[in-house]
Simulated assay, not measured.
Amino acid sequence: MSPPVDPTPSAVDIVGLGEAMVLIQPTGGAPLDTCETASVHVAGAELNLLAAAARAGAVAAFCSKVGADPFGRRVLAAAADLGVTTDLVTVDDAHPTGVYFKEVRPDGARRVHYYRAGSAASTMDEGDADRALAAAPRLVAVSGLTAALGEGPERAVVRLAREAHARGSAVALDPNLRPGLRPVGPTLVGLLPYTAYLVLGQDEAPTLFGTDEPAEVFARAHAAGVGEVVLKAGADGCWYATDRGPAHLPTAAVRVVDPVGAGDAFAGAYLAARLAGIGPRGAAWLGSQFAAGVVAAPGDTEGLPAPERARELVASAV
């Protein structure tokens, strides 16, 4: 059964806790070791999600830490440009903003080089969760990626999920597993009883549930206490919740330019739609439309629909 949509008024619909970094990418597909020019972007899973939610009509706020440096200022400016409130972002004088570099190899594969160890966001702890809770959002969005940044961020994610649930705010969990970071599977399993919306990739399901078969994933998630599940399958579309079990929604057919950020866009649009009272099928359709735009453009958020088009899509979601 789908979790109820909380009708309680709030100045903030969604708060996302996580790290945003500056992305530097060679232009024209050149390798990093020989490129002469590069483009600069701002990206991060939670910020991507919030940007999509804001474009879909939600009031979205980012809770994080950035360094007192040009990259931190760039993150704040980019978030604001995306319509995401940054009042919950603090500036850390002692730690830098994280950066990463992405290059597209000749075979189309993407190689990413992260420089986030010791970043301002990696020092987040329970106090940052409390700052998010003070905003009294209708929903908080947390991910395994944030928990994997270190012990402090992991504690922040756990506190935010537990306390938000206790205070009547919905909790959305995206496992967002990263093999190169700390394993946090057991921590995420422990958060399932507090989770109103579980948005996960089919490839992540075995870590949490021991299977990627949609009906089993949904059944095991519900048995663990999850309210609603949506299972992303990339080019194969997604599965969304119905009273009769999971139903499949094919993906929109588009030319893939850059798949990074598509899952975040899906999740942000899906959650914004559910908070607006749109049912799971309509929310999944809206998420798929947002994701299709993102994969068809370079960068994590450049492919989000323009505001007017986003309003048209939301109005069409049923």
Rank of each mutant, 00 (worst) to 15 (best):
M124I: 04
P31I: 11
P246C: 01
P137Y: 02
L231I: 03
A223C: 04
A161S: 11
C238W: 08
A53P: 14
P106S: 13
R309I: 10
A134C: 04
A172N: 06
A79R: 13
A109G: 15
D87Q: 06
V230L: 14
L88K: 07
L145A: 13
A60W: 06
A156V: 11
E19I: 08
V15E: 02
S122T: 15
P137W: 01
G234S: 02
R159V: 11
E302Q: 09
R178G: 04
A267I: 03
V318Q: 10
L177V: 09
A233L: 01
E216L: 12
L208S: 03
D243N: 03
L231D: 00
R311F: 11
R182W: 02
A68H: 08
R244Y: 06
P31Q: 13
A221Q: 10
L160K: 05
A109Q: 15
T8R: 14
V256C: 05
A164E: 09
K232L: 06
G152K: 07
Q289F: 05
L286F: 11
P186K: 00
A296G: 13
E302M: 05
A297M: 08
G227R: 03
A68I: 01
E204P: 06
V112K: 05
L173G: 14
V66A: 07
A235H: 03
L200E: 00
L275M: 14
I14A: 08
Q25N: 09
Y240H: 11
C63W: 01
H95M: 03
R244G: 04
G67A: 10
V314I: 13
G225S: 02
G108S: 11
A164Q: 09
Y114V: 11
T97F: 06
G144F: 07
S64L: 04
R281M: 08
P305T: 12
T242P: 02
G268E: 04
R182Q: 10
W239N: 02
P106G: 13
A109V: 13
P106H: 10
G279Q: 08
L191S: 01
A135C: 12
A147F: 03
R116Q: 06
P4I: 15
V260W: 06
S10C: 10
R255K: 12
T8V: 15
N176F: 05
T207M: 11
T86V: 14
G168F: 05
N176V: 07
K232D: 00
A77Q: 13
A56K: 12
A269Q: 12
S169I: 06
F62H: 12
T85Y: 01
F218H: 00
L50R: 03
R309A: 14
P246L: 12
A120S: 11
K102L: 15
T90N: 05
L49K: 01
F218V: 05
M1N: 04
A297C: 14
A136T: 10
V226G: 12
R73H: 12
D69Q: 12
L200A: 00
A306I: 01
G277N: 06
T146M: 09
P259V: 09
L139I: 07
A283Q: 10
R167H: 08
V99E: 01
Q202Y: 00
A68D: 15
G303V: 12
A58Q: 03
